[in-house]
């Protein structure tokens, strides 16, 4: 058994909230640079260079990459040998978000009641996903999610007979509907299988996967490749004004499902696909 004081969790969550909002991971930056080189539309190329400049400026001058610094989504993978001390784990996570958004000059974008809509003033509560894994480590991932793109995300409860083509059509439909609203170029996380809520969570997790890797199953890896190509032929382009760069990367996660179902969730994200992790 390993004891971990929850104050450490607060500290790490705070640091991750700030880090995620000022710099992107190397794979995302590499995809943006590659897109800038290959973009065929002059205006599209110009917009991509503005996004590159924006990233540089954000890091140098400590201005958040995007003013929508997101609702904090926190993934916790907890080794089953871990014993938390010093307080309630969930309070510690929320405190980390509170401190991170305050000390990091991040926008407070959360309303407490979805209908009464009063801003909570400190960007809490975060959405937290826990999982128990073997061992005595804790892995924390903070993925602040902006809502311009979150609003364009979709769930489709397909029939088994719809098959792989049905899945691809659903993804393409979601991307077309998102169009210029979701700040293209987009990044797309897809969840296939499970239940209604499981496929949505898979799609969210897929957004934290590396863009330069592929699904371990070859038919899903092939679907990732094909969808990327087909989406980039839609001519939505940077800022929705046309071009060959509509999507910087698409990742898929799958899970077993019921004999009667084929759930598909499409979680759309803009190029500001923020996720930072730490293992303790």
């Amino acid at each position: 058994m390993r004891e971990i004081n929850v104050n450490l969790i607060t500290e790490k969550v705070k640091e991750l909230c700030i880090a995620a909002n000022y710099d992107l991971s190397e794979d995302v930056k590499a995809a943006l640079n590659k897109a800038h080189e290959s973009e065929q539309n002059e205006l599209g190329k110009n917009i991509l260079s503005q996004l590159q400049e924006n990233l540089q400026l954000a890091k140098e001058e400590m201005i958040p990459i995007c003013q929508d610094t997101g609702m904090a989504v926190v993934f916790l993978e907890i080794g089953q040998e871990v014993y938390f001390t010093g307080g309630f784990l969930e309070d510690a996570i929320q405190e980390g978000v509170r401190q991170g958004y305050q000390e990091g000059y991040l926008r407070k974008s959360v309303v407490g009641d979805p209908l009464l809509r009063v801003n909570t003033g400190d960007n809490t509560p975060a959405v937290i996903h826990y999982s128990i894994v073997p061992g005595e480590q804790v892995k924390i991932t903070v993925a602040p999610k902006g809502f311009g793109s979150e609003n364009m995300s979709r769930i489709f409860m397909l029939k088994p007979a719809d098959g792989a083509q049905g899945v691809k059509d659903a993804v393409l439909q979601a991307v077309k509907d998102a169009g210029p609203n979701a700040c293209p170029p987009m990044m797309i996380g897809v969840g296939i299988g499970g239940t209604f809520e499981k496929c949505a969570q898979l799609a969210k997790e897929a957004l934290t996967l590396k863009l330069d890797e592929r699904h371990p199953s070859s038919h899903i890896a092939q679907m990732e490749e094909e969808l990327l190509e087909e989406i980039n032929r839609l001519d939505i382009g940077p800022a929705g004004l046309g071009g060959t760069t509509t999507c910087l990367g698409i990742r898929i996660k799958t899970y077993a499902t019921h004999i009667a179902g084929l759930p598909v969730a499409v979680n759309i994200c803009c190029h500001v696909n923020r996720h930072e992790s730490v293992e303790i």
Partner: peptide, 21 residues
């Protein structure tokens, strides 16, 4: 626009457009 908070001595924080619809 809903900007992020300004740091000391700065006019405003990050300040891009939100979805118009």
């Amino acid at each position: 626009l809903g900007p992020s908070p300004a740091r000391e001595g700065k006019v405003i924080g990050s300040a891009g457009p939100t979805t118009s619809s």
